[in-house]
């Protein structure tokens, strides 16, 4: 067994050490704390599963979980749709394609916090001014209701992530063998048929990757949420990550927040793995 060689483990050691220190140890510690009455200063007594029992009746936590789920579903669909559309545009034979690629990717280079503040300005000021000018009620008072807060977050997230997802699709689209598409063309397949029956199945691996990235990113969203709506109005646009942070650092219920974080981790892990498993089966071998 070559893998039993000492040098194999020695090569791995730095990575294992780093991973252990920043992932495994905090994870185990966190799991331990979630069974105590830890307040961030003293560990407190051991309370068993009490924290876990409490959180299933915690309306605010469940509300934020539901809000996050809705947000993720809508965002994942939109981001992948826009990302794939952009990828198809920039891989078609238009002249400005490299300029467009850069432009579409650009939002990704701006930090989430800054983006949130930029879009806050757009939603509050620009939307209101435009709404006033053209007389559209619906463009005014954005972010002051749950619905506009929700769509504000979706728009912000789609705008930011679509460019990134586009890059992944481009990679797969450009790797498609030309002869397959040509053959389909000669056989008389229309553009739509070519896309539906040739291109779409062949870029399926890209879906697996993109879905995984968008799903985990939208579920764990924090900074955009913080800077755009800060959970307002009345905490109705608060996502899970933010709810957990507030439980810990505003209410000082550190152990309880830790229990929520563990549950949140399990949910995200299960969804992401199931998604990858299902998508993997759909992929076509070339």
């Amino acid at each position: 067994m070559r893998t039993r060689e000492l040098s194999y483990w020695l090569f791995l050691a730095p990575v294992l050490l780093a991973l252990g220190l920043v992932v495994v140890v905090p994870m185990v510690l966190g799991l331990f704390y979630s069974f105590t009455a830890w307040n961030g200063i003293q560990t407190g007594e051991f309370v068993g599963f009490q924290n876990y029992i409490n959180l299933f009746t915690d309306e605010r936590f469940l509300d934020s979980l539901w809000f996050t789920t809705k947000f993720s579903v809508v965002s994942v669909i939109l981001i992948n749709f826009i990302g794939l559309s952009l990828a198809l545009i920039v891989t078609s034979k238009i002249k400005t394609s490299s300029l467009l690629r850069t432009t579409f990717f650009m939002p990704n280079l701006i930090g989430g916090l800054i983006l949130g503040f930029i879009w806050q300005f757009i939603f509050l000021k620009v939307f209101a001014s435009v709404g006033e000018a053209v007389g559209m009620e619906s463009l005014q008072a954005w972010l002051s209701t749950t619905e506009t807060g929700f769509w504000g977050l979706v728009i912000l997230m789609s705008w930011q992530m679509a460019g990134y997802i586009m890059v992944i699709y481009i990679a797969y689209l450009e790797g498609l063998p030309n002869e397959l598409i040509e053959a389909a063309e000669i056989d008389g397949a229309s553009t739509i048929q070519r896309f539906r029956y040739i291109i779409f199945p062949l870029v399926a691996p890209a879906f697996t990757v993109s879905m995984f990235l968008t799903l985990s990113n939208t579920f764990k969203l924090y900074d955009q949420n913080l800077s755009l709506t800060a959970g307002g109005p009345y905490n109705s646009t608060e996502m899970v990550a933010m709810e957990i942070f507030k439980t810990a650092f505003v209410q000082n219920a550190f152990a309880y927040a830790q229990a929520k974080a563990i549950i949140f981790f399990l949910i995200v892990a299960v969804i992401a793995l199931v998604q990858v498993y299902i998508n993997k089966r759909r992929e076509v071998e070339m």
Partner: peptide
């Protein structure tokens, strides 16, 4: 072996 050892120790 020694190369591997050195590399990992350094890292």
């Amino acid at each position: 072996f020694s190369k591997g050892l050195m590399a990992s120790v350094l890292l």
